[in-house]
Design a protein around this nucleic acid. Sequence first.
RNA 1: GCUGCUGUAGCUCAGUGGUAGAGCGCGUCAUUGGUAAUGACGAGGUCGGCAGUUCAAUCCUGCCCAGCAGCACCA
Length: 695
Amino acid sequence: MVRITLPDNSVREFEATTTTGAEVAASIGAGLAKAAVAIEVNGVAQDLSEPIADNAKVNIATAKTELGLDTLRHTLAAQVLALAVKELFPAAKLAIGPTIDTGCYYDIEFPTALSSDDLPKLEERMRDIIKTGRAVVRELWEPEQLITHFEATGDSYKSLIIAEAVEKGQTIGGKVSAYRQIGSSVAGKEFIDLCRGPHAPSLDKITLAFTLTNLAGAYWKGDSQNQQLTRIYCVAFASQKELDAYLTMREEAEKRDHRKLGRELELFHLQEEAPGQPFWHPKGWSIFLELEAYIRQNLRRYNYREVNTPKLVSKGLYEQSGHWQNYREDLFLTCDDVMQPIVEPAAHEKAQATTLGSMAKGIDSLGIYSLKPMNCPCHVQVFRQGTKSYRDLPLRMSEFGMCMRNEAHGALHGLLRVTSLTQDDAHIFCTPEQMESEIIALCNLIDEVYEPLGFKDYSVKLATRPEKRVGDDSLWDAAEKALADACAKIGIPLTLAPGDGAFYGPKLEYHLKDAIGRTWQCGTVQVDFNLPIRMGALYTNEAGERVPCVMIHRAILGTLERFIGILIEQYEGKFPTWLAPVQAMVIPITDAQNDYAEQVRQTLMDAPITTATGGLRVEVDTASERMQKKILFAQQKKIPYMLVVGKKEAEDGTVAIRLRDGTDLGAKPLAWLLDRLKTEVLTRADTPTTSAQAA
RNA sequence: GCUGCUGUAGCUCAGUGGUAGAGCGCGUCAUUGGUAAUGACGAGGUCGGCAGUUCAAUCCUGCCCAGCAGCACCA
């Protein structure tokens, strides 16, 4: 007899000791039996066909549950998409087909390139396969036999996975599970897929709404040294409604793409002569300046001192720091004259073309310089001027330094990944004893900076020692512990990112989510015991000894370029007044009010309101258009305040105020408006709303 | 860097082996309008770059550059 506890804590008894999930579901009701796709037994997912242990707590999964949806997506990938590919492209080699939070994908090696034109055909075949409603049965195989099977079908990647599972001891009593689709046929054999499961017991359970969206390249096991496979993405949801909602969401996300808005709002542009380097237009640059000022104001509260250091620095400094050894490929190198031949042209003919530009790296005899890829080595040089004692620490050195990185070409992406980047960078030189309180202060500062910008939800990862690193492991132990302890102390939940640390130290990574749900690393806090030793950042301790300090590398916004890109998407271009490139647009109703409109603009521009650009940013729309059109235009430019001036306002010395969201505040004296703008700008209020009307 | 795709007017895009089109935007003129698009006319393109095939290339082929969707990378 088997006793089974249901989610409502009721207990049912079954005679047979081999009672399965399917039987439990059937005992509850025919509807549930039909909808069931898998079952959770004591928190572990298993097939409906497997027997359930005595005294188990179970939860039956349907398309409406997380596990059920995941199981159906999994079956869709492994039994439907995979089979469709095998039927249409017999020579294709299946690799892996996991689920993701919007559906699933399958990585496959194709002998000839698949094109996106093939997707509709594949999708149609998938629907045909589902219509057969064939049963999918779990089987346990001897690893060698299953490998033999996959060698015969050409799916050598499956063999590799089996071999690895055996090696790692991830087997079920020495066997591996596979799923057979009863009645299917590929090259005369029933289709079998290696899988841990669970799977839906039959294809007619797959009631998902799905569509194949796109193709992409992806490396086998995520390693760029390996074979590149073709990844087929499939979005799949429990209902057509959810699928439509997801597709609509993607379209909406496209509308707030910072590259599109950046052009429409005249913030910046990119062109091929300067890949990855934004040309900032006046309106975009004003955002840049405001953010910089915002950060400066915050740093002041935490006693930072700002510096500025050279852009073009000899490679020697980077050899000392270790960046040369780790990032040489990504440095922009130059010397006094790259076109000057290195070898005497007369020596031999080929030498004519042999310039530094062509021979480039590894030539020590010439003074080779690198555009600085980061600020830390330069900051150490500032620190080293003069003798420092423990009384000088902690020393917090900040810089908005522009760095250049020759990023992999495929990595560039609008403002989110650029070649020339401006970090809100700083290095804290401190003693080991000060380290923890400095990290805690930093975590607080970061939160205080993010919060007013609307980023309340972010995740923090602890990136630990990578394989390629410098320094003793004992130092790494201490550094990783310092970060973990500090976070524990102030209650920041951490997830681990093993091996993702910098070559000189572990780091906390702050990840923010953008409008399309992609996450971007922005803030970072890195504890470094190694560069101070390598580069001689020493201080005299209380005992009079010269010892290396601890260096904490940190950035809050990360790079201003990336952060502005994220902000554009976050706000959909509707910046709060303090950040808005144009804060108010004066709209004269007829030409007769142009002079008054200009007076209004001048009054606002001259108002004693401090902004990063020296005062309020106001424009006048004197186009020979109807007022309605000018309002529409200002709205399209997402300008927070529209100040309509007609004959009446000109006579009364007022402006008729209309907000970006359509709210009409009516005619108000200029002094009233100035008061309101001043409050809004100085407090960096989120956005102009009617609720602020009391101001 | 890798896989697939794209590059035609300021923007969005159509099109053809015989040197190009639309809508919006832009300019001029008329209109002087009270809170989401006034009308007429006009200008604007080495069809990403370099080679090749051809009597002829924006179109076909190759190479390069840039961009897009991912992957890898991200000090």
